[in-house]
């Protein structure tokens, strides 16, 4: 492929991505969720792929970010006792400025809280390795969901409504499409930068042999905590916005959605090829598009198919798409024997 063709293809793709919600106005939410999926897979891969810490509990930050954002939004403009009633449709609409202010503050608060949480939880949990880390985080994710569904302040099991999106010349779908597009791109850029320098090498070293990394004097605990915090920040920013996009936070199905988002993020990263920058992006795109196109034909058997898909991918295709390509053509990934010039 020559350079001009590649550039023009890239331009066309970029244009398509930018214009997608205008071309397909009926699918704005699904398109926004595509970028959410990319983000989920990317943030999972920081720990799971690059660092070898297979977390099943990253959904915690997604949910905590979501609730924090919603609670801050609620607290800023509404009386808590009347809130459910207000949001029920009879009450006030926020102006665009107020809405954005609330959302901005909420997202900031959620992100900050999640970093603090990642550091605190990390101090205990990141010391665990292997099986124990995986299962501990699995427990963490479910515990969070169970706590949220028993906590009255958060609406307990009946959930929490987020403020209505104000009426302006653009709709909720458009707004959040571009929000998630920006956020996913930002995540991608930040991660690619992080992986390209010392941080990336250090977490790869932890993945390959943590004892060795320690015996070489690496500050492994710090690196692990930072890695978890980075995924926590982006997950919180995604969660907070997703709550507003959906408009209603259910503790188990939307916020701490272990059986859906929690599992999908792992699956998408593996499908694309964990431990690579592009793998999660590719995996998420393929998974989401397939799911949107074909899932509905399965008539309630979707989740059965999901379980089957996990088993098949994990057992037969654990390297993922990029991992498979790498195995076939290692030279393309820079593995080569090279003499002195």
């Amino acid at each position: 492929m020559n350079k001009a063709l590649r550039t023009s293809l890239g331009m066309a793709l970029a244009l398509l991505i930018l214009a997608a919600p205008l071309i397909l106005p009926n699918y704005q939410t699904q398109l926004a969720v595509l970028w959410l999926m990319v983000l989920l897979a990317l943030t999972w891969d920081i720990m799971g792929g690059q660092m070898g810490y297979n977390s099943f509990g990253n959904i915690v930050y997604f949910g905590v970010g979501m609730y924090t954002t919603a609670v801050i939004q609620r607290g800023l403009f509404f009386d808590i006792d009347e809130y459910a009633h207000v949001a029920g449709g009879t009450g006030s609409q926020l102006s665009l400025l107020d809405y954005l202010l609330g959302l901005g503050l909420g997202l900031t608060g959620g992100a900050l809280l999640c970093v603090v949480l990642a550091v605190i939880l990390g101090a205990g949990i990141l010391g665990l390795r292997g099986h124990y880390f995986a299962i501990c985080t699995l427990g963490l994710g479910i515990a969070a969901g169970e706590i949220a569904s028993g906590w009255d302040y958060l609406g307990a099991g009946s959930g929490l409504v987020t403020p209505l999106f104000p009426e302006t010349f653009f709709g909720r779908g458009i707004f959040f499409y571009y929000y998630f597009l920006t956020l996913a791109s930002l995540t991608f850029v930040v991660l690619r930068y992080l992986y390209s320098e010392r941080f990336g090498l250090a977490i790869n070293a932890i993945r390959d042999d943590e004892d060795k990394a320690e015996s070489m004097g690496l500050y492994t605990t710090r690196y692990k905590t930072i890695a978890w915090s980075v995924s926590a920040v982006f997950l919180a920013l995604a969660g907070g916005a997703y709550g507003n996009l959906i408009g209603f936070i259910d503790p188990l199905d939307v916020a701490f959605a272990g059986p859906t988002f929690g599992v999908w993020m792992v699956l998408m990263a593996i499908l694309g090829g964990k431990g690579t920058v592009w793998g999660p992006v590719i995996g998420a795109t393929i998974f989401h598009i397939t799911q949107e196109l074909f899932w509905t034909y399965l008539l309630g058997w979707q989740r059965v198919a999901l379980g089957l898909l996990i088993v098949v991918i994990v057992v037969f295709f654990p390297l993922g798409i990029l991992g498979w390509i790498r195995e076939r053509w290692p030279e393309r990934f820079g593995e080569r024997v090279e003499g002195k010039q």
Binding site: R198, N204, M216
Partner: peptide, 25 residues
């Protein structure tokens, strides 16, 4: 570190004495 190439193995083996948080990035 089996999953990294030799140069990467070497690059991450620099002394870490007194490494600041910023140096990690």
């Amino acid at each position: 570190y089996g999953g990294m190439n030799c140069v990467e193995n070497m690059r991450i083996s620099t002394p870490t004495h007194g490494e600041s948080l910023r140096a990690m990035f």
